[in-house]
Design a protein around this nucleic acid. Structure first.
Lengths: 231, 231
DNA sequence: GTCTATACCGTGATAGAC
DNA sequence: GTCTATCACGGTATAGAC
């Protein structure tokens, strides 16, 4: 399995100054208000550009959202790939064990680092990304099938080696369910809070990781079908 | 803990024939197209009523969505409460053990039954409900804080008895994470599928339950912090 | 190529006649 | 209760200025 940090396969697009101003304004408003609730007129007003500029530099509102998203996600995805490469190198040289927790941390560490780096979007972008995957936005299919699809292939392979007793179908399900927990946890929407009082402080990244990782690792390591111990 | 099937606390609203026709048309379109993508003009045309009727019988589009939702959710919530009551009665009389899986099944069984009953919305409504909770729709806060909040209280109490070694904060986190898996699984959006091929058949309710329950039970039963075995 | 002004059509909502 | 007319606002498309 070769190193797959595609540094030149998808080079960073060069945006004009106007386009960059639109991207910056849109990012803040999308994160703050959501996609549907943010109007192009708000964005262009805050960016100080004409309304039609967004349809000139980007194709549409959805395409703008995709550009906002891709700008932050691409570096994150590369970091995840670096983690996976490092883990596999450590395993190959006998320096580390390829267990479930190690695979999980190859996603959690970059997510945690990003959530603490405001210059790359910070926790708000992690929340936006998680929400986007959870809500299965159709307008991001293109970007996601490139970047995210590649990551899924790598995580699947790594998890399969960490769970050799499971069939490939079961491994896919474990990854599916595991990512759903991680996305949801990082999305920070408190499902239980809907009665008024909050049961869980769902916004502190360190607290999220502390409670989420043991849950995900245990869930992924569960016995294949109705047996008590792990595989 | 007294039986809490609130049969008269929130009686079924009586809708006029026009309102019912709007509700039926709206339900199908909301499930098929989503909330934002469905217009009131589509709904009223399919229902054979005037556009303004929806704003007369219901307050707004959001309130209509809430009414569509509440009509299906209320019976389901009652069924969940019956399951919890039955479990606690069995435990009190020594006929069953209050373990994590028993609590989980108090949610899974009604969800599975509803997903196989087209007359109450079937699998499409289970998917709609799960998506609504996952996506944290603000327009459903009122309905959810009534019905769902009560359920959360009961599930929290039951899970706390099944996991006596965990603090109440940890129990809340386990329930939060566990429900996020269950919602996501029933929502049926394949997170991994974004590369083109599908890794997981995420729409068959029986298959979902088969893979999801062991995962959730293992995750909820994980050791408190970094220890190998369950509590 | 880049940017602007403006018009178009569909949306949810509302007022007022019947 | 029901309907018609109308409103403000949304994303989008285009003609034309520089």
């Amino acid at each position: 399995m070769k190193s797959s940090v595609s540094s030149d396969a998808h080079p960073e697009p060069k945006y004009s100054e106007t386009a960059t101003r639109i991207l910056d304004a849109a990012e803040g408003l999308f994160v703050e208000l959501g996609l549907e609730a943010t109007s192009l007129r708000q964005i262009t007003q805050q960016a100080g550009v004409n309304l039609a500029a967004v349809n000139y530099h980007f194709r549409s509102k959805d395409a703008l959202f995709e550009a906002v998203f891709a700008r932050r996600f691409a570096p994150w995805a590369r970091e995840c790939l670096r983690e996976l490469d490092a883990l596999e190198a450590s395993v190959a040289s006998g320096k580390a064990a390829l267990d479930v927790e190690a695979v999980v941390m190859c996603y959690v560490r970059p997510a945690l680092a990003l959530s603490k780096d405001p210059s790359r979007g910070g926790a708000v972008f992690v929340r936006l990304f998680s929400r986007v995957l959870v809500e299965n936005h159709r307008q991001l299919r293109e970007t996601l099938s490139r970047e995210w699809g590649h990551l899924v292939t790598r995580y699947t392979a790594a998890l399969g080696r960490a769970l050799p007793r499971l069939s490939s179908e079961e491994v896919a399900w474990r990854l599916h369910l595991g990512f759903s927990v991680m996305f949801h946890a990082f999305a920070g929407n408190d499902i239980l809070k809907l009665f008024g009082r909050s049961a869980v402080s769902a916004r502190d990244p360190d607290l999220i990781v502390k409670h989420m990782v043991p849950f995900v690792v245990a869930g992924m390591s569960a016995a294949p079908s109705g047996k008590p111990a792990a595989g």
